[in-house]
Design a protein around this nucleic acid. Sequence first.
DNA 1: ATGGTAGCCTCGCTA
Length: 261
Amino acid sequence: MKIATWNVNSIKARLDAAVAWLKEAQPDVLCMQEIKTTDESFPAEAFEALGYNCAVHGQKSYNGVAILSKRPMEDVTPRLPGGDDSDDHARYIEAVVPGKKGVVRVASIYAPNGNPIGTEKFTYKLSWLDRFDVHAQELLREEEPTALMGDYNVIPMPYDCWDPKVWTNDALYQPESRAALRRVENLGYTDAIKACHAEKGLYTFWDYQDGAWRKNHGIHIDHILLSPQAADHLKTSGIDKEVRAGERPSDHVPVWCELDI
DNA sequence: ATGGTAGCCTCGCTA
């Protein structure tokens, strides 16, 4: 089973690119982030025509997440547990997807950016990641294959960005942000890219500004975290960076892994 | 020292 994650930065602006990549890459599951549209306006027909079912948790103009799956999904949960009425951001959707040998629970995650630091935006980022950590613990108790995948807006290590000095005062590289992601990994989740690739300097995002793609000034912030039962079946993983050189690209590229499930 | 990009659907906000 091939499962993928991609922050598309508006699904309406990226529909042609998304359809082209799905035809080429043929994933069984795609978790999307920053669809930037409502459930009603999500272009489900275009994906259904390719054989995908859609589970959408949208929001007007900002945020918004979705899961596409060739097999029908079960147990769709369009929210991160533990929130209250004050959190109206669409940043999480989870579903159970059947494979040939068993099921996988997948989550499409868009963690808050949190900039600038020293504001309520950074506080919100850390509290959201705390909520996510609690839920990641709950999911581990199921002892089932689970993949928590998406845009975590966290640069885990110095080698996950082209120049750590530039990111010193950025919310994506604060010690508190990095510790929050590490807490989840320390529960027993495996990073699917790092498990398969020893080389450093693999990026998933290049800013639109300042020729970042041309200069390879990227960062690695899109991650796939696998529960032990999923990691047991990890075969391969990859980052489809050539997508960044396409026409009207997202600033993020697809990240994927194959599970023998 | 500045402005540089993209997407929302407005003339500012988010990333």
